[in-house]
Simulated scan of single mutants.
Amino acid sequence: MNTKIALSLTALALAASTSLAFAHGDEEHAQPRKYDPTKVEPTDFGQEGNPKKVARTIKVDMADNMRFTPSDVTVKRGETVKFVVHNDGKVLHEMVLGTKKAIAEHAELMKKFPEMEHADANMAHVKPGKAGEIVWQFTKAGEFQFACLQPGHFEAGMVGKVTVK
């Protein structure tokens, strides 16, 4: 099997194994996630947070200049934060939390499958003029990222940093 086919099959397997569906675009996404503690999955950068245990709310604005405001956020280890993500632009934007490696891998996957839809607890897809939310508990200290993985946005520098102390 040649390398190109093997890489394509690997990407498809990754998409299938992470419950990703195809249809990522300017559409409305499913109803907001309802918190279910039995479905919380720990990651290298934390886990879905319990909305009843939010310690603070952080407003993050996204704009068509491919920037987040603020672009750097500091939180305490163990803290549950609600990000209220507002799209000030005229195109769809999203905020995806992750490790630097996971964000880069996801960005590469989005290049190959730009119509991919996903609705995980660590992301909010926000139409122009609208707002979304992410409730996240940062269980591990370190430096993590948030990014917009819409085609071309990550490459244009639409990336932010979360420092967990």
Rank of each mutant, 00 (worst) to 15 (best):
N2D: 13
N2P: 01
T3K: 14
L7D: 13
T10N: 07
L12S: 07
A16R: 12
S17M: 14
T18V: 06
S19W: 03
L20W: 05
F22S: 11
F22M: 13
F22W: 11
A23V: 10
H24P: 02
G25R: 11
G25T: 09
E28I: 07
E28D: 14
Q31A: 14
R33Y: 05
K34L: 12
P37E: 12
P37Y: 03
T38K: 15
K39Y: 00
E41S: 10
E41Y: 01
D44F: 06
F45A: 10
F45R: 06
F45T: 02
F45N: 05
G46Q: 03
P51Q: 09
K53Y: 01
K53Q: 14
V54I: 14
R56F: 02
T57A: 04
T57Y: 05
T57F: 03
I58L: 12
V60A: 11
V60K: 12
V60C: 09
V60W: 09
D64I: 04
N65Q: 11
T69F: 03
V75F: 08
R77E: 15
R77V: 15
F83P: 07
H86N: 12
N87V: 01
D88K: 15
G89S: 06
K90R: 12
K90S: 15
V91T: 15
V91G: 09
H93R: 08
M95K: 06
G98C: 10
K101N: 10
E105I: 09
E108Y: 06
E108G: 08
L109K: 01
K111H: 11
F113D: 06
F113P: 00
F113E: 08
F113S: 06
M116V: 12
A119P: 00
A119N: 13
D120P: 00
D120L: 08
A124F: 04
A124D: 07
A124N: 06
H125T: 04
V126C: 06
K127D: 08
P128L: 05
G129H: 08
G129K: 09
K130Y: 04
A131G: 04
A131S: 15
G132D: 10
Q137S: 13
Q137R: 12
T139K: 03
A141E: 15
A141S: 15
G142S: 04
E143H: 07
F144L: 08
Q145W: 07
A147L: 09
A147I: 03
A147Y: 03
A147D: 09
Q150W: 05
P151E: 07
G152F: 05
H153E: 10
F154S: 05
E155D: 15
E155L: 05
A156I: 02
G157M: 04
G157C: 06
M158I: 03
V159A: 06
V159W: 00
V162Y: 01
V162C: 07
T163I: 14
T163A: 10
V164L: 10
V164D: 11
K165V: 13
